[in-house]
Simulated assay, not measured.
Amino acid sequence: MSELEQISQHVHSRISSLKLLLDLSLTDVSQSKMKKLGQEIFAVDRLLEEFEKCVERQREQLRSLKDLEESFQKNLEDVTHMKENIPSHMPKREGPAQGRELGVKPSEAADVQPLQQEQVKKSSRSFIREMDFITVLEFDSIPQYMRGRVSYEQLNATVQSINTAVTAKYKILHQPVKTLNNQSRKLQQRFKEQETKHTKGQFFVVEEDIREFTQMKVDKRFQGILNMLRHCQRLKELRGGGLTRYLLL
């Protein structure tokens, strides 16, 4: 039984006693009965005050519960929105810094350093850089006039296509010539001829690579998307020799 219910029963009990005393007083009014009647009235008055305080506490609890319900409802709406709008592409998490691999003690570093250097040389020849996907915050930061009707998913689909072209191109570049067929040898030669002193150590593609290795149309819309990627600092242009090279940042 709640506090409010207990006080309510007590008040009703006191009122019943008071009614009984009043009924008795109609037949025989004595000094003792009047005193008892006054005590009962005073007790009922104090109970009513306590009852009012209890009602106010209950109201305050009700307001707190309503605030809690509103907060819970808002959190539920936020979680539901997040669940229904999970980005199809998430930023990649960078791996551990070189030379800080787990399980290698400082005393063992000198022993493994020559082996690591050899592995780095081998991996550097096979490593192919990819463009990071655009985050939702980055997409929202792009001016509306630049975005036009391009959606978040369409922008990252272009990122995926560029990564596909970069991977295909540099896989051919990293292979020994004797392992390539005639078509791949021609492509490798073309890739090497497109390189300049400014692209040394960089990863880039040209429009011809996009057409060669993807199904994407290289049109005005594609150029608009490239502007968005430059705005998000994913690539930059390098012109020369009649070509526009798109370097990954």
Rank of each mutant, 00 (worst) to 15 (best):
M1V: 03
L4Q: 01
L4P: 00
Q6F: 03
I7Q: 03
I7K: 04
V11H: 01
H12C: 06
S13Q: 13
S13H: 14
I15G: 02
S16L: 15
K19E: 15
L21D: 03
L22F: 05
D23K: 07
D23H: 05
D23Q: 12
D23R: 09
L24Q: 09
L24R: 08
D28T: 03
S32V: 14
M34P: 03
E40K: 10
I41H: 12
D45Q: 12
L47H: 02
L48W: 01
E52D: 08
K53S: 08
K53R: 09
C54E: 03
C54M: 13
E56A: 13
E56V: 13
E60N: 08
E60S: 07
Q61T: 06
Q61Y: 08
L62S: 07
S64G: 05
D67F: 02
S71Q: 13
F72P: 01
Q73C: 06
Q73F: 05
L76F: 03
D78W: 04
V79S: 14
V79W: 12
H81D: 14
K83R: 11
N85A: 01
N85W: 02
N85F: 02
I86P: 03
S88A: 10
H89C: 06
M90V: 13
M90Y: 04
G95A: 12
Q98P: 05
R100I: 04
R100Y: 05
G103D: 01
G103Q: 00
S107T: 07
E108I: 00
A110E: 06
Q113S: 04
P114T: 01
L115V: 11
E118W: 04
E118V: 09
E118I: 10
Q119F: 08
Q119N: 08
Q119H: 07
S123L: 15
R125V: 15
R125W: 01
